[in-house]
């Protein structure tokens, strides 16, 4: 149990950017320690995907649950968010002024963040090419999101329900 907490503390410290990077880190740690085999981990990621919320967080909760039951789920979840939460509090208190909108640091981080976003968008290329409906729906979602005030929640839920209907009945 202590090992579980330490591993997820470490993962929380090393987890940068989007969820899928973090899932990759968790996979390396979990498989490397023989806590789960590859098939069990793939199953677990599938469940993390269909449950709402950040995938990285869900994968951590699920791994804890599989390894140590309910208590493991609590420990893994708390451990993986401990470092980000503490940093958010500390950085927030220390740097109120420096992070004001338009400040030097904030503008510097924006250049880097836009780079990271560009990388994320680029990484979607394989999924865009995987099936004809992915680019179609993506372009539609892009336009809806750019040119209307529609909340993206409805775009996701709408596309999901459409997918459920089409996939079940065709």
């Amino acid at each position: 149990m202590l090992e579980l907490a330490l591993v997820f503390l470490k993962i929380g410290l090393a987890s940068y950017g989007g969820g899928w990077t973090i899932v990759g880190i968790i996979k390396t740690e979990v498989l490397g320690r023989n806590w789960l085999d590859e098939a069990a981990f793939a199953d677990l990621v599938a469940i993390a995907q269909i449950t709402p919320g950040p995938v990285a967080l869900n994968t951590a909760t699920m791994t804890g649950f599989r390894v140590h039951g309910f208590l493991g789920a609590v420990v893994a979840t708390l451990a993986v968010v401990a470092v980000p939460l503490i940093l958010a509090i500390v950085v927030g208190m220390l740097a109120k002024k420096h992070f004001a909108a338009g400040s030097r640091l904030s503008e510097a981080l924006k250049s880097a963040t836009l780079g990271l976003l560009a990388m994320t968008v680029w990484a979607f290329a394989p999924s865009m090419a995987s099936a004809w409906y992915v680019p179609v729906l993506s372009v539609l979602a892009f336009c809806l999101s750019m040119f209307t005030k529609l909340n993206p929640v409805w775009i996701i839920l709408g596309a999901g329900c459409m997918g459920a209907l089409v996939f079940t009945f065709l």
């Binding site: 995907q49 269909i50 924006k110 963040t113 836009l114 976003l117 560009a118 994320t120 968008v121 979607f124 999924s127 865009m128 099936a131 409906y133 992915v134 729906l137 993506s138 372009v139 539609l140 979602a141 892009f142 336009c143 999101s145 750019m146 993206p152 775009i155 996701i156 839920l157 596309a159 999901g160 329900c161 459409m162 997918g163 459920a164 209907l165 089409v166 996939f167 079940t168």
Partner: peptide
Amino acid sequence: PVQGFLKGAYAVVPGLVSAFAVNM
């Protein structure tokens, strides 16, 4: 139905993230 829902929901992700990037 769950698999279909996921396929649909994940298909709009690239579009939504791109729109967010363009807005930024």
